[in-house]
């Protein structure tokens, strides 16, 4: 009994924080998604699924879902491939020549505030004096409008997001690669396997739990992408999500609907849908992982 009380006592602070700042607001969000509710209004009225029906008649909401999906579909493979590639480089090649410095350099952007990295990339993507266009024109390619272009604004945001988040995923992959026993790679080489065979048939299956974990993290963070888009495409002066809503993702639209236009019930309904999408994708990934991920 004493032990049980001690256990509950130790759990209490964390539980309280989660309750007050996560579960209660989340439940309340679910509640107001079925109501007509205003932050300054006392006239709360039950509307059932009306908020949800209204959303699917809003072209901007559907557009934001498509944008978020596009963002996620590009970001997941880019994140996995780039972070795994860098991790392999750090482990095998660069590790012998100042590995610690390289690891630090790769991880540094992740510990830099996302707003700061966004501002750096705003400069880099400046169409007139930015580094990106300087590099492009130096190799004979045409300059791009980047954040001012409907076609290139979202890729520009993706590049910033990748740059900011890769460090974390590289560290996770390095940990995954370190867990592959060296003897397995050596015995595969003795068995006559070439480098690509060693990777595809030994290393890749053995780090599949790590890949799955990175994929889930990248999926969730892609659907929730907000700060970098808000900072790079508009900031506090308005206009975030542009040009012409090209970078308006679902998470950004939730924010704008609630705190710019004051439609909290609609924003709550959007959040519920976003939650449902992320949950569904995670379950699908889990279902797939049970078939392709190998747990030792």
């Amino acid at each position: 009994m004493q032990d049980r009380l001690t256990a509950y006592g130790l759990m209490l602070p964390a539980t309280a924080v989660f309750l007050v700042f996560f579960y209660v607001p989340a439940m309340y969000l679910l509640y107001i998604s079925f109501f007509h509710w205003g932050i300054l209004s006392s006239a709360t009225r039950f509307v059932g699924l009306a908020n949800f029906r209204l959303l699917f008649h809003q072209p901007l909401f559907v557009h934001s879902l498509v944008t978020s999906a596009y963002y996620t579909v590009v970001m997941i493979p880019a994140t996995v491939l780039l972070s795994l590639g860098i991790a392999l480089l750090l482990k095998d090649g660069l590790a012998r020549r100042g590995g610690g410095i390289w690891r630090g350099a790769v991880f540094l952007p992740h510990v830099t505030p996302i707003v700061a990295t966004a501002i750096i990339w705003i400069w880099i993507f400046n169409p007139h004096f930015g580094l990106a266009n300087f590099v492009l024109t130096s190799v004979g390619l045409p300059a791009l409008g980047w954040l001012q272009s409907v076609h290139w604004a979202l890729p520009a945001v993706m590049i910033d997001s990748l740059w900011h988040s890769l460090g974390l995923y590289v560290i996770i992959f390095l940990a995954g690669l370190a867990s592959v026993p060296r003897e397995l790679v050596e015995v595969a080489r003795l068995d006559g396997a070439r480098r690509h065979q060693v990777f595809s048939r030994i290393i890749w299956p053995l780090i599949s739990p790590t890949t799955f974990f990175v994929t889930v993290l990248a999926t969730v963070s892609s659907w929730q992408a907000f700060s970098q888009i808000y900072t790079m495409t508009g900031g506090p002066h308005g206009g975030a999500g542009g040009p012409a809503f090209a970078t308006t993702t679902d998470a950004l639209l939730v924010y704008q609907t609630a705190f710019v236009y004051g439609h909290f019930s609609l924003a709550a309904a959007m959040s519920v849908i976003l939650f449902g999408i992320i949950m569904a994708l995670t379950l699908v990934q889990r279902w797939i992982s049970n078939r392709v991920v190998f747990y030792r």
Binding site: P181, L184, L190, L206
Partner: peptide, 20 residues
């Protein structure tokens, strides 16, 4: 000569079987 071209078979202390 790289290991894969030496026609050498090796048994490791911990067997190093491919677990998957």
């Amino acid at each position: 000569v790289p290991p894969d071209r030496r026609n050498v078979g090796m048994v490791f202390q911990n067997y190093a079987l491919y677990p998957h």
